[in-house]
């Protein structure tokens, strides 16, 4: 019996050592040189794998950044702090990272937007958009089924009581997933320091907008005439604000007959208003 125990111990030992040596040899021979920065970068990134950078997850971005195929400030979710760290690892100068947040460009709350049908299908804006465009009469506004809320990885979106999504700008990382899933293009990324918005995306003529929604842009040109810095232009039946020229004086918002212009006031500390409301 002792002989067979000894023999098996020797056989196992010899085999184990042989295999171990084989693996050691193999790991040296077949070693793949990985850029050590890739791992460092992967650890720096938020790890949400949101894909806003355009690469397959955080590791994909780390690899691309190390190879110089992605900009140092490419991580939207990480914001300026991550961009600075990434730039440090890569040995490049951090470019001016402009924080962006999502914004809901629609004022058509349940009370203000006309509704002449009930949608009872799958609770998803994309599905509702395919079959007749949900219940609202406006063919451009928010469908209110919350696909953006479900898509948000960071819990920055919630569905408000009036049927429009609300962006928590503190939590929003500007990854842009909500803007991608919104079939109407109602959610768009804007610079975080932008103060004035025209909360409507409808390119329909003013008369048609009036018929379906009492809070849409009717392209009346009052804001364009009011603006002292020439920041507002009505293009394709929709007022467009140039944020670089806007001084956030709030005069356009005060004059807007449908209150579709939202102005947060010139100071950063100004109390943010809920989407759809306007400064009177």
């Amino acid at each position: 019996m002792w002989a067979s125990i000894g023999l098996s111990a020797v056989a196992m030992g010899v085999l184990a050592i042989a295999f171990a040596l084989l693996l050691v040899w193999a790991s040296r021979t077949f070693a793949v040189k990985n850029d050590p920065r890739i791992e460092m970068l992967t650890n720096l990134l938020p790890g949400a794998n949101c894909g806003a950078c355009g690469f397959s997850g955080c590791s994909g971005f780390a690899k691309a950044a190390a190879e110089g195929k992605a900009p140092a400030d490419g991580c939207r979710a990480g914001g300026p702090s991550v961009a600075a760290k990434v730039a440090e690892v890569l040995g490049v100068k951090a470019s001016g990272f402009k924080r962006q947040v999502a914004h809901v460009f629609c004022s058509g709350t349940e009370a203000l937007a006309k509704r002449s049908a009930d949608y009872e299908g799958w609770e998803d804006c994309r599905a509702a958009d395919l079959v007749g465009g949900g219940g609202k009469d406006c063919a451009f506004g928010c469908l209110g089924l919350g696909t953006c809320v479900k898509s948000c990885l960071f819990g920055a979106l919630s569905m408000g009581p009036d049927g429009l999504p609300i962006v928590d700008t503190e939590r929003c990382t500007g990854c842009g997933i909500c803007a991608q899933v919104c079939p109407r293009g109602v959610i768009q990324l804007v610079d975080a320091d932008r103060r004035t918005f025209v909360n409507c995306v409808s390119p329909a003529p003013g008369k048609l907008v009036r018929q379906v929604c009492s809070a849409g842009c009717i392209a009346c040109n009052i804001c364009q005439r009011t603006c002292e810095t020439g920041a507002i232009h009505v293009v394709d039946n929709l007022a467009i604000i140039n944020p670089d020229a806007c001084t956030a004086c709030g005069k356009c918002a005060a004059k807007c007959p449908t209150h579709v212009i939202e102005c947060l006031g010139p100071q950063e500390e100004a109390e943010p208003l809920a989407a759809g409301q306007a400064v009177q």
């Binding site: 056989a11 193999a26 077949f30 793949v32």
Partner: peptide, 26 residues
């Protein structure tokens, strides 16, 4: 030593998968 076959075959498989992984990665 036929009674050792379970242990040794597991050893073989584990080693071989590791080796294969390295070769394929390279």
């Amino acid at each position: 030593l036929q009674f050792l076959e379970y242990v040794i075959f597991i050893l073989v498989i584990a080693t071989f998968v590791q080796l294969l992984e390295m070769v394929i990665k390279k």
